[in-house]
Design a protein around this nucleic acid. Structure first.
Length: 531
DNA sequence: AACACTCGCGCC
DNA sequence: AAAGGGCGCGAGTGTT
């Protein structure tokens, strides 16, 4: 049962069972709570506009259909990438009206003097858009897979909102201790922390004059007059240099990053009541990976993990998929040899024999095949791969070739790569054309694998979410890794749920396949102990 | 003053 | 000869 839903700013809204009449309610959260036991699939324009308020009112839902994300997936598949994806735009297209650009949401327009205020779409309009989308899905070559994609993507919006609502445990006190230990006391505004300033002073002393270690220009100039020609100021390049400024400079760079990315200012902005609440953007990456729009949740440095501590009497269940991308490739390509190796817990060890007995060689070969790498031993190892695992090899080669020719590629469930830009088309027929073509080939080569891996991870989370007992909560997700916060006595049940979810995600995407997707969960009280 | 871009580096 | 995919975010730098 689909039920279209709109909300207004007063906490009310409209509901419309797709097979019924629209009805206005004053208390939307109460109405949703009442209907939820019948497990409707809620249809809304954009979860981010609706679901946070429901969560704040203590209401969670099991299923939804996100019209905006579905529209984006459909448009891309239909070769209409970049057309406005909002529900307003979808509705306007259906009625031959002027199509509003994305970002012109009605609420963002109300203070514009000469622009007439655009009315929010009603539940009837949403039902109409849904019917159109379902029909377009049916017309696709593989509607079943695309329906799974839409369901997984929509479930992702629920999870993202819930994780933003619940937050990841974050001990301010432990964080403060760590910052004090590494950087010194919190500085007054605009000043460098003491330990950072000391390192900056050491850099200047080593050069014999003041140098701002944050300035690439000054560093290159200072090294040049010291007789060292640098192409960049990257750490990896600096490490090759023999000069007394290098050691304090490397230490400075590491701490400066910590200070600006995860220091006191960051904590003031993002940590409240012992929780780090990130803003996830579902489908924010073209490959379908999530992005964040603030808080940098997907880039928490390893050194910060000691700050993530379960509440008293609770545990963190941390699980990551081992070697997800090569397994995805094995399953997609239907390469029997690779799939057999991917039936083992350590795929690379299982492959080692084929690559001269070295596990590392197997790893380089697989990564080069998926990323388009060609340096070092890669060409030699790729030749082995072509010989031993021809279907897997051909699968990524075909994707690369399509990209080089400017064609579209798709993930397993039907997410479509962006088309080449006009700039690329101009470039590819010019003197640097071969390079532009190769660059795009690397992108599409990786896209088919990365996007399918993202789909597997989404499916895993959607299933896991449904298996979690109250009051366990998903609190973190990072591409192929999930974290659940739960009472200690639920740890075993959650661990089992993770394994079940991995198996089920594999079945949902690939049906019967010899490929295994190991998802080992560990129970810890502190994230730092998870690896 | 405000914005856009590059560089560098953290994560996968 | 060499050629590695995807992001976010900050400071510095350049442009308007």
């Amino acid at each position: 049962m689909y039920v279209a839903l709109t909300s207004d700013s007063s906490g009310g809204g409209t509901l419309r069972p797709v097979e019924g009449q629209a009805r206005r309610v004053d208390d939307l959260a109460a109405a949703v709570r009442e209907l939820e036991p019948r497990r409707p699939r809620w249809v809304w324009a954009d979860a981010r506009q609706v679901y946070p308020a429901l969560l704040a009112a203590g209401v969670r839902v099991a299923r939804c259909h996100d019209l905006t994300l579905t529209e984006a997936l459909l448009l891309a598949h239909e070769g209409r990438y970049g057309e406005p994806r909002s529900a307003e735009a979808a509705h306007a297209r259906l009625h031959g009206l002027p199509v509003p650009e994305d970002g012109d949401e009605p609420t963002a327009r109300q203070d514009t003097l000469f622009e007439p205020e655009r009315a929010e779409l009603g539940a009837d309009a949403l039902a109409e858009i849904l019917a159109d989308q379902l029909a377009r899905i049916e017309a696709l070559p593989d509607p079943g897979r695309f329906r799974l994609l839409v369901a997984a993507e929509s479930a992702g919006t629920l999870i993202a909102a819930e994780m933003g609502h619940d937050g990841m445990p974050w001990r301010r006190d432990v964080h403060e201790e760590l910052l004090a230990e590494l950087l010194g006391p919190r500085p007054v505004h605009g000043m460098r922390p003491a330990k950072l300033q000391a390192l900056a002073d050491q850099v200047s002393a080593a050069f014999g004059h003041p140098v701002n270690p944050d300035s690439v220009q000054q560093l290159v100039k200072a090294f040049k007059s010291a007789g060292v020609a640098l192409k960049t100021t990257r750490s990896s390049e600096l490490k090759q240099v023999d000069h007394p400024a290098v050691a304090p400079l490397l230490a400075y760079k590491e701490l400066a990053r910590l200070y600006s990315f995860h220091g006191w200012v960051w904590a003031d902005q993002w940590v409240r009541e012992g929780r780090f609440r990130a803003e996830y953007v579902v489908g924010g990456v073209v490959s379908g990976r999530w992005a964040t729009s603030g808080g940098g949740a997907l880039q928490i440095p390893k050194v910060m993990r000691k700050v993530v501590v379960a509440d008293e009497g609770w545990a963190l269940i941390v699980a990551d998929a081992a070697q997800l991308e090569p397994r995805v490739l094995a399953a997609m390509a239907g390469d029997r040899g690779l799939a057999t190796a991917a039936g083992e817990i350590d795929l690379y060890s299982a492959l080692a024999k084929a690559f001269g007995g070295e596990r590392d060689n197997a790893k380089i070969a697989m990564l080069s095949a998926m990323y388009g790498g060609t340096s070092g031993d890669a060409p030699k190892l790729l030749a082995v791969m072509r010989e031993r695992f021809p279907r897997a090899y051909r699968f990524v080669e075909d994707a690369a070739k399509a990209g080089e020719e400017g064609k579209l590629v798709r993930s397993w469930l039907g997410r479509t790569s962006p088309p080449p830009s006009q700039r690329w088309k101009d470039l590819v027929s010019g003197p640097d054309g071969a390079r532009a073509a190769r660059d795009r080939g690397r992108f599409t080569r990786n896209f088919v694998v990365q996007a399918t891996a993202a789909e597997w991870a989404l499916a895993l989370m959607a299933v896991l979410r449904g298996l979690l007992p109250e009051p366990a909560r998903l609190v973190f997700f990072q591409h192929d890794e999930v974290m659940v916060h739960c009472p200690l006595d639920q740890a075993e049940q959650v661990t089992a749920a993770v394994a079940t979810a991995a198996t089920e995600a594999t079945r949902l995407l690939f049906g019967a396949t010899p490929v295994r997707f190991p998802m080992e969960a560990v129970t810890v009280s502190c994230y730092a102990d998870a690896k």
